[in-house]
Design a protein around this nucleic acid. Structure first.
Length: 418
DNA sequence: TCTGGGGTCCTAGGACCC
DNA sequence: TCTGGGGTCCTAGGACCC
């Protein structure tokens, strides 16, 4: 660990990713004669489906204080002529993949942190890191058509903070000796892991900048922030030493699906249909991942935006759609307070590999049958499309038989931890 | 037509065991 | 008939990230 300070880490961050990628496609296919990156524009969900939030904004839109995550209605109040375009997730995945392929030419040590963020350990660049960074940035722009920021430092945290600096389409460094000038003057909210709630608590202590947090006595933070005190205090001082993890070897901790419904759900049957469709896609992903789960959780968001959740630890791990849905039904019946439902979700956790199970229970007739059925259905859907086999309850029903991402070409993402 | 969806981790409190 | 303490597992909720 002693030579950690000699690492060179890049954090590559696509500028306004969704918006840039949509812009590139529009220009390529002549769908739009203007470049939406140059006008006040956003990528936003469909208001009709109650997904009406801003997912990405152009730099001109930012000038009108339009923020990611706010409702489209609110954004339009700030700038009524705002142009709104729908997201195209499969396009985004292809753009992300193309970028990663390009980056792999420079190092195999790559961690996909999200669809538009990548960490690279490029210690082997030695003192040539600057020219390499410019080369990468230029190539992405010329070959793929979009702009990125590259943050450079000796650890992931500082590299990430650097790529976040104001100037876009740029290479930024943030080495230890630059912390004081480049990072400490920033509002404390800009520090990675300081969100809304933590910011409010820090303000109460009269901590407003990252520098003030860095210099605050750790002992005084501990009673308020518990173990979190160490994390944010270290981060404020630029201390962080996690390795760039090859995304292929990160094991996922949970798999889930949730969906906001077009109209509030008020009856049990409809809620269960929605839960079944979410369960179908999530269990398919579970099996595709060769996992079984030990815990099943359901979450509900009411029309009044109140959220609650219940979970259950299973006696036996499983990956069977039928078994899991049976538990889902039980949990739902135990928890639902009859309030209209805006969003429901299922999540499976305590994942374990299925190799052991396959060996041990191969001769249990009942389990064997269920697993064989799931396997057959999965492979039919794989070959003939997801809609080729659907459950009869969905016929003549307006509930989508398979909702949520079905894991096609998905990749592992670890948000909120480096 | 106001507020998406997919993750991870931490904490507090209760149950249960020794 | 007074009333310990530690460990582990489980649950619900909250905080953070993109």
């Amino acid at each position: 660990m002693g030579e950690n300070h000699e690492r060179i880490i890049f954090h590559v961050d696509v500028n306004s990713a969704y918006l840039s990628w949509t812009a590139v496609k529009q220009l390529q296919y002549g769908e739009n004669d203007i470049d939406i990156r140059l006008i006040p524009s956003v990528i936003g969900g469909s208001e009709e489906d109650r997904h009406g939030i801003i997912l990405a904004k152009s730099i001109p839109a930012k000038k009108y204080k339009i923020q990611t995550g706010e409702s489209i209605v609110d954004a339009l109040k700030k700038y009524p002529d705002l142009k709104i375009y729908p997201p195209d997730y499969s396009l985004y995945m292809r753009c992300s993949n193309a970028m990663v392929e390009l980056l792999k030419e420079y190092t195999p040590v790559i961690q996909r942190y999200s669809v538009d963020e990548v960490f690279m350990d490029v210690s082997h660049f030695k003192d040539k890191y600057m020219e390499k960074a410019y080369e990468i940035k230029t190539r992405i722009k010329e070959e793929l058509g979009f702009a990125v920021n590259i943050g450079i430092s000796h650890n992931k945290l500082l590299a990430k903070m650097a790529s976040d600096f104001k100037k876009k389409d740029s290479v930024h460094t943030l080495f230890k000796d630059e912390i004081k000038n480049k990072m400490w003057p920033l509002p404390v909210r800009e520090l990675f892991m300081v969100g809304k709630a933590t910011e409010a608590k820090l303000h109460k202590l009269n901590i407003n900048t990252i520098e003030e947090l860095a210099k605050y006595k750790l002992e005084f933070l501990k009673p308020i922030f518990k173990s979190y005190a160490n994390v944010i205090h270290n981060y404020a001082n630029g201390i962080e030493n996690s390795v760039v993890r090859d995304s292929n070897y990160i094991n996922i901790k949970g798999i889930g699906n949730s969906a906001t419904v077009k109209k509030d759900i008020c009856d049990r049957e409809e809620a269960l249909k929605t839960l079944l469709s979410l369960t179908e896609t999530a269990t398919m992903r579970l099996r595709k991942n060769n996992n079984m789960c030990g815990v099943i959780a359901i979450s509900i968001k009411t029309s009044g935006f109140y959220r609650y959740s219940h979970q259950k630890t299973l006696r036996n791990i499983t990956d069977s759609t039928e078994e899991i849905f049976h538990e889902v039904t039980t949990i739902f019946d135990e928890m639902w307070n009859k309030e209209p439902i805006r969003q429901v979700g299922v999540r499976f956790s305590n994942l374990v590999g299925n190799e052991f199970y396959q060996r041990t229970f191969f001769d249990d007739k009942d389990i064997d049958k269920k697993r064989a059925l799931d396997k057959t259905i999965d492979s039919i859907r794989e070959r003939f499309g997801d809609e080729s086999i659907i459950r009869s309850v969905f016929i003549n029903s307006n509930v989508n038989p398979l909702s949520g991402g079905n894991g096609e070409d998905d990749y592992i993402m670890m948000s909120s931890i480096l």
